[in-house]
Every structure is written in structure tokens, then in C-alpha cells.
């Protein structure tokens, strides 16, 4: 399992440090943000943290607003978000989850519970990453299949196929490149009778003639 990076965003330094130390002890890599704006900067970066623990009440941008922004990006493997809140009323929790948070933890965080919830997040993130990778490779395969469905220009005599770069390729090469199909060469019974058998017969005649010549 790769080491996942967790963002801890909280304007209150004591909580931030304690939560960070808990996660570090559990083997996670940590980055910190001391307000919502800083949190958003990290989350909008090209390689965002896999999991984010966001304080509900932060100056600048509050936790739920940051979540809404993440969700609005509509990524295939978005950051898993846990809201940290000292408000334990169910209305606030529902609002946070509605905004798009995956989970919530009430402050002060209990170490075992926090780590258990972050571990759940890590499992979801890994699953999502694997799925996104699978979707990507399936899309690639589909693109190749589509290329085979189009009208292929083929030479009426030698059966070569003209590829996208305007080169004539052997049919074997073209299909191998566009579908991964490989050909093993053989002959059908009709072609055997028409092409192979006369050649074998001719060969036999030559051998026979040579033998007779030697025997003389």
C-alpha cells in the first residue's frame, strides 16, 4: 500500500498538531493548512492529497464550502473528505454530508476512531484509484476497437491495409497494432488444393527426376 497524504485543515493550532500527530503515528504523510483558502490551494493543486480532514469552522472558507468546490470539479478519483466538527447536532452533520463530505468526526478527536475512519477513507481512495485506472485502460481499448469499425481501405490484390498515416501495412500488422490480435499462419483446404498441393507435387517431381539422374 502506498503511503497516502492527508491534509489537516484547521485554524486552531492545538487541534491541528494533535490530529496531525495521530495520523503520522498511524503511518500517513501529513500536510497542514491553517485556513480554508490554504486548504483549497492544496486541494486544487495537480496532485491533491488523497484524504482531507477539514475543520467545519475556518476563517475564509469553511469546511463545507471547500467540499462543495471539490465536488464541483467532478474528478474520477476525488479527495476523500472528513469534516472535523465540534458541533454534534445532527442537522449540522446532515448539512456537511449533503455538501459532499464523505464522513465526519467530532472534536476533540478520539485517536482510535479518527484513525479507523481515515483507514476507511484510504480503502475507498485505493478502490477508486484502481477503478479509475481500469476505466482509463478500457477507454483506450474501446478507442482501438472503434478504429477497427471504420471503413478500411484494402488493396484488392495484395490485401494490404492503408493506415491512418497513409502507409500500406500488411493486414497482420494492422490488426496487431489496433487490436492486439496476432495471426498464426496456416492454409484452408481449398487453398491447399489450389496452391500448396501443386507446389508439393512439383517438388516431388523434381526430387524424383534428380534421383533418376543419379541412378543412371
Amino acid at each position: 500500500m502506498a503511503i497516502l497524504r492527508v491534509l489537516v485543515a484547521d485554524d486552531e493550532p492545538v487541534s491541528r498538531t494533535v490530529v496531525g500527530a495521530m495520523l503520522k503515528k498511524a503511518g500517513y504523510e501529513i500536510s497542514f493548512a491553517s485556513d480554508g483558502q490554504q486548504a483549497w490551494q492544496q486541494l486544487a493543486a495537480p496532485q491533491p492529497p488523497a484524504i482531507a480532514l477539514l475543520d467545519w469552522e475556518m476563517p475564509g472558507l469553511a469546511g463545507p464550502e471547500v467540499v462543495e468546490r471539490i465536488r464541483a470539479r467532478g474528478e474520477q478519483a476525488p479527495t476523500y473528505v472528513i469534516l472535523l466538527t465540534s458541533r454534534d447536532s445532527s442537522a449540522d452533520i446532515v448539512a456537511g454530508l449533503k455538501a459532499g463530505a464523505n464522513d465526519y468526526v467530532t472534536k476533540p478527536a478520539n485517536e482510535d476512531e479518527l484513525i479507523a475512519r481515515v483507514n476507511v477513507g484510504a480503502r475507498v481512495v485505493e478502490l477508486q484509484t484502481a477503478l479509475a485506472e481500469r476505466v482509463r485502460s478500457l477507454e483506450e481499448a474501446l478507442a482501438n476497437v472503434k478504429a477497427l469499425q471504420t471503413l478500411l481501405p484494402m488493396c484488392a490484390y495484395c490485401k494490404s491495409i492503408r493506415n491512418d498515416q497513409n502507409y500500406w501495412e500488411k493486414v497482420e500488422t494492422y490488426f496487431h497494432d489496433h487490436s492486439g490480435v496476432s495471426f498464426s499462419h496456416s492454409y484452408c483446404p481449398t487453398c491447399y488444393e489450389r496452391f500448396v498441393k501443386p507446389q508439393l507435387d512439383a517438388l516431388e517431381e523434381i526430387t524424383e527426376a534428380q534421383r533418376r539422374q543419379k541412378g543412371r
Binding site: 492545538v14 487541534s15 469552522e57 465540534s86 472534536k107
Partner: peptide
């Protein structure tokens, strides 16, 4: 609110 957070943590 933020004081409450700090106090809770210690």
C-alpha cells in the same frame, strides 16, 4: 469556539 477546541484536545 476555537478555545473550546484547544481545551478539548489537551
Amino acid at each position: 469556539h476555537s478555545l473550546k477546541g484547544s481545551a478539548g484536545n489537551i
